[in-house]
Design a protein around this nucleic acid. Structure first.
Lengths: 137, 137
DNA sequence: CAGAAACGCTTAACATGTTAAGCATCAGAA
DNA sequence: TTCTGATGCTTAACATGTTAAGCGTTTCTG
């Protein structure tokens, strides 16, 4: 959401890069296909984003010996530093939004979007994290 | 929403092009800045979309003598044909979505999004049309 | 009347969404 | 063991979102 963009840009991150890094900080390590589902970004887009984050040494990749098709991604030390630097501002912005809109309303909206998603797609619906994280609006 | 895309692509239209054409069919003629607000597309993006639609002769432009800065846009005959050709399929898809999700839920969601928007931005909040039109999800 | 500020619109540049296609690898069937 | 289909991931190409900048026009101020 554009409320977060100025703060993120100060740290040289786009929204999507931030969301990906946060997910990695949260999850530890994850395979790319799973990460795409978790952050609700299409595979080709995620590939490109990860390429850039890897070039900037914010993430690292590893191919498990058990299945050479797969790539496991983790956040690197540089990436964790960035997360730690940006998280306070991001959380403050989110808290401000929550105050203005109301926690109850955000929660209701989140639930309704989940219902909508399940109604339309049935399976394979990924719920974004509950309020308290960077909601994708 | 991706439910509409296959049908639109058969007619050589993207979602945004369709939304712009439908707004023009609905509104008659409108200035570009106003159209951008109405369809919730940023000016630079709308400029590019209109450029393409104009090249394909789906829309027409006119500069009013009263203010040479402004451009008034209208849908052209070719554009109206396209609207008439695509509208039945689009409305059928929307009706299907409404059945699966529930009209009441869609209406509630629409209202909640309006509240969210007003809470965050106060003024200048543009409400997308009520269900029955192509909602921007 | 002249100059400054604001407005309307466009374009450039970059990031990402999206669709299609391709390559390497794995799993399962014959 | 070999072959086929599926999977994981990447890239190309195109459309659009976004930010910044620029140009022409209008409005406002001194």
């Amino acid at each position: 959401m554009k409320h977060f963009r100025p703060a993120l840009r100060q740290s040289g991150l786009t929204e999507q890069q931030w969301r990906v890094l946060r997910a990695l900080a949260w999850l530890g390590e994850i395979e790319i296909t799973e990460l795409a589902r978790t952050v609700v970004i299409l595979g080709p887009s995620l590939s490109r984003i990860l390429r850039d984050l890897e070039a900037r040494r914010f993430i690292e990749r590893r191919t498990p010996e058990t299945d050479l098709r797969r790539t496991v991604v983790t956040i690197a030390a540089e990436g964790m530093k960035l997360i730690d630097a940006v998280a306070p501002a991001s959380e403050a912005i989110y808290a401000s939004i929550a105050r203005r809109v109301g926690e109850g309303r955000l929660s209701d909206l989140h639930d309704m979007l989940g219902v909508l998603e399940r109604s339309l797609d049935g399976k394979n619906a990924v719920r974004p994290p509950k309020p308290g994280t960077n909601s994708d609006e």
